[in-house]
């Protein structure tokens, strides 16, 4: 069920990217897609009644959630940070040139 909700979130993001005309809204759609993916990844590593995978002195390791997705999601978040920063700076530059965020008006390229 909860995986299904992640896919719904993913679909919302995809809708945002495909249907919206504002550059900023497209970027938000992109971010939502990435968040949905990361959320799904974390949820896949979850175990029932699991606890955080932190090793502390003198504790027994029992029933921890899968630590690997958490490490990987951190990497994926860094990557999406990079992409988002780049896309936002591109959007600012585009606004600087075209004076609009509307993609229907930004149409120099054809074909």
């Amino acid at each position: 069920m909860i995986y299904f909700l992640c896919m719904v979130l993913f679909a919302i993001g995809l809708y945002g990217v495909l249907r919206k005309r504002n550059l900023v809204k497209i970027i938000l759609g992109l971010v939502i897609i990435e968040y949905a993916t990361h959320l799904l990844f974390i949820l896949i590593g979850y175990r029932m009644n699991g606890r955080a995978p932190i090793l502390a002195e003198g504790e027994v390791i029992a029933n921890i959630v899968d630590p690997l997705p958490q490490a990987l999601v951190l990497t994926a978040i860094v990557i999406s940070l990079g992409v988002t920063a780049l896309v936002v700076s591109l959007a600012i530059r585009i606004y600087d040139r075209y004076r609009t965020f509307d993609i229907t008006k930004i149409r120099r390229l054809r074909g």
Partner: peptide, 11 residues
């Protein structure tokens, strides 16, 4: 053109 193409490509 570069900015527009790059934005499209990036998205």
């Amino acid at each position: 053109e570069e900015l527009e193409a790059s934005f499209k490509y990036a998205v």
